[in-house]
Design a protein around this nucleic acid. Sequence first.
DNA 1: GCCGTTTTCGGCCCGACTGTTTTCAGTCG
Length: 578
Amino acid sequence: MENRAIARLLAETADLMEISAEDSFRIRSYRTAAGVIEGYPEQMASILKDPEKKLTDIAGIGKGIAAIIEEIEERGSFERRDEMLGKYPAGLLELLNIQGLGPKSVRLLYDTYKVESIDELERICKEQKLRDLPRMGAKLEEKVLRSIASYRKTQGRFLLSFGQRAADELIEYLSSVAGVETVTAAGSLRRGKETIGDLDLLATGTGAEAALEKFVSHPRVHEVLGKGPNKASVKFGLEGLQVDLRALGAESYGAALLYFTGSKEHNISLRSRAQKLGFTLNEYGLELLDNARLDNETRVASATEEEIYAKLGLDWIPPELRENSGEMEAAEEHKLPRLVEERHIRGDVHMHTTESDGRATLAEMAEAARERGLEYIAITDHSKALAMANGLDEKRAVAFAHQVREMDQRGLGLRVFSGLECDILRDGKMDLADDALAELDWVVGSVHSYMNLEAAEMTDRLLRAMECPHLKAIGHPTGRILLHRESFPFDFEVVAAEAARRKIYLEINASPERLDLSAALIRAAKARGCKFVISTDAHHPKHLANMSYGVRMARRGWLEPRDILNTHSAVDFAKAIA
DNA sequence: GCCGTTTTCGGCCCGACTGTTTTCAGTCG
């Protein structure tokens, strides 16, 4: 079973255990293990098969969880999970997504009214029966009904790009308040996660409290979830994105930024470390433990993240790595990667023009790329299998390649390579014949159809495609569309190993709807020796700006400039693909 | 259930806010 699926079984069991009010520390262990496994670059199944390796060597996995993983591999479930599912139906898990309800309330609702679905919960609220339960009232009924509506609309997640736009808008708005010095986005947005659940903003300066007032009165705020002297939470915009704003003094800025950037697992790990070193860490600072008075005299660090990490014996950890998946150990040993940055990117090698389904001409795309400071691009229009995208057949592809070369030689202000995004057909053959592909500088192979094959068939399809001598890269390798479509099933590790062997690049597609590969897969592929390209797949000049999202995914995958082909010069790119 | 330059047993991250209370449990991040 895939790591992600194993992690999910553990996390769900932890949720059920929480509803069942089991030991909270055991629950935490399950959650920690789930997080570690989800981000682990190697499949649990292959570790089990390897006599050289032990699951218990992974931090967060001990004898108990190792046995559970073995049991999962054997039969798809494990004893405690079965036991929990015997006590509480799986439907309760979804109820935990409703804001205002936690495990205690979910259990009470189930025990009292047998509520085990969102629909039933909605009915109980509408019939005003929730208020009959202890410590619950009319206000909670209303809150839960609003939460249900919001959950149904969005499933609670938003694209990173959506969060970024909201953050930009609010930061500009709040920065205009007198006395506000800085407004910064923290949370999963700062970590560059492909989807975010909410938006966390921090404001510093004497005007920070005034910023809270202005915040809750923003015209696009349509619900205030809470407001105190230090923080406020609202639902923002028609989509109902939750935004939290925190007001704080500049002296605590680093501690607060660290705290609100998360991830939660990273924070817990950090605090645990602080405790062992005789400190306590909260959002106000790092303080000496066992000191009766917690005041400035006991505070050892708080103004910047760097000083807090340093006091804990760690190098500063880039936000994208803060997922409690090895970054703490690397920071301790001064072995953190020197992550790729957007300024390292010198070319963009997946984009479309009006020749297929792009919205701008070759000249317009080239001009936009030049304005962005790129040194080279590759034009990769679709192949004929994508008829609805006006994909190119052999004749058109070759003719267009000539046209691209001609324009390149006339000079467009940057180097333009002739390429193609060639469909990988159902049986793994390329959509265009070899002799046509041979005319092109750069062929990206992508799957756009028959995505519901069995995993083995899909794996074979990709392996077969890589036999094509002209294939240089695999485009959006998993086919996922965020919040809409899961990755198609295939054995990623086998495909990645073959790509590494054949020196075929894996694309990190920077389109905000895709962000394909995920961080975990990037790490897994890198561990197998793969190299990458980060590409925007732009269909319009403005899409070229999406490069920043692709770079953030690469950073989350621990990539350095040398792992990425398009950080190299046009000359070196040409050499590498020749 | 995990983990160990205090420990193989006994710890395990921390605080704000809300709504319902008669002093705080539950939820959230």
